[in-house]
């Protein structure tokens, strides 16, 4: 295992300390590093709180700030945060407008946020994101995973909350965005969880995993390594088939690296995916390319397509000031 770490047990704490110090103008760390919150609070708005296992940086702490999240609760690597973290984050940032939890659809995340919601005082609501088309909804009662589309929900709902939308409006908006968002991921290598010390799975030099999530879990199928166009074609087809959007629909295309894939390759994938989606009749009106929802050091990427309308486009374009997204 080749990583910049001191001791496997301290990876998260030291990294969070660095994050908080580097972005002290934007965020502060809660006691015992239970959460990251905005430095300047606005308790009159709906408080947006997300969280989940670590190892997906910059998700979620990198999205705390004006126009996006109010707080994020980092769990251990690939391990949901615990209810006390979530409850204390809510106490630290929420006002009378209530709290909205944005939760990726994983058993652990859902249960921990659920327990937190049971304990927390004041009004709470929850949006569960489940954008991963690699998981067929019908077969598995747990449903689809929440992956990189979560960023889009957090950005758009964050902008609405900043503008004063109430809790019910935020929930409805978040559910609408989530329902119009689809992702699919592919891994060229496994990642290595620091505490495990070895790669989660072993892939041959000529193999890749199609349909992976963001926790280093193996995907749906192991297939032969293919060219970028073939990979993009399989992914965009799965996404576009599932979205079934009318021709001419405007969309946001997010090409997301998993941590070990360089920018030069992400733009190449963007180029392929954009062309294919436009051939399917979508109009790519907004784009984001970078490593935003990662799986530690995994080489791989995901494509996310989110249908836009005038309202969500304006909310996507609205100012944001976080460590990882700024405009």
């Amino acid at each position: 295992m080749k990583k910049f770490i001191n001791a496997v047990d301290n990876v998260l704490g030291e990294s969070l300390d660095g994050f908080a110090a580097a972005h002290a103008d934007l965020v502060t760390l809660g006691a015992e590093r239970k959460f990251v919150r905005r430095r300047e609070l606005n308790r009159s708005k709906v408080a947006l709180i997300s969280g989940g296992g670590s190892g997906h940086e910059p998700l979620h702490a990198g999205f705390v700030g004006h126009g996006m999240l109010d707080a994020a609760c980092p769990g251990q690597v690939f391990t949901s945060p615990t209810p006390d973290q979530i409850v204390e984050a809510a106490q630290a940032v929420a006002g009378d407008a209530g709290v909205l939890f944005i939760v990726k659809n994983y058993a652990g995340d859902r249960m921990n946020f659920e327990m937190a919601a049971e304990i927390a005082e004041g009004r709470t609501a929850t949006i569960v994101t489940d954008d991963d088309v690699a998981v067929e909804k019908s077969t598995y009662s747990i449903g689809r995973r929440g992956v990189a589309g979560t960023l889009i929900v957090e950005k758009i709902v964050g902008a609405a909350a900043e503008k004063g939308a109430d809790l019910a409006t935020c929930v409805a908006l978040g559910e609408r965005v989530n329902a119009r968002t689809r992702s699919m991921g592919v891994a060229l290598t496994s990642c290595t969880v620091p505490a495990a010390g070895t790669p989660t799975f072993a892939l041959g030099e000529d193999e890749m995993e199609m349909g992976v999530g963001i926790h280093g879990e193996p995907g749906r199928r192991r297939v032969k390594l293919a060219q970028a166009d073939a990979i993009a074609s399989e992914m965009t087809t799965a996404i576009a088939d599932d979205l079934a959007a009318p021709a001419g629909s405007e969309a946001l295309l997010l090409v997301n690296g998993f941590g070990g894939t360089p920018t030069i390759e992400l733009y190449l994938m963007y180029n392929a995916a954009r062309r294919m989606l436009e051939q399917r009749g979508l109009r790519i009106a907004r784009s984001l390319v970078g490593s935003y929802v990662t799986s530690l050091d995994m080489a791989g990427c995901s494509l996310t397509v989110s249908l836009l309308d005038a309202e969500t486009t304006a909310l996507w374009d609205a100012p944001v000031r976080t460590a990882a997204l700024k405009w």
Partner: peptide, 14 residues
């Protein structure tokens, strides 16, 4: 257990 395990197993064993 709830406050320290996290993940799915934390709430469940908790």
């Amino acid at each position: 257990l709830v406050m320290t395990v996290g993940g799915a197993s934390g709430p469940l064993y908790g």
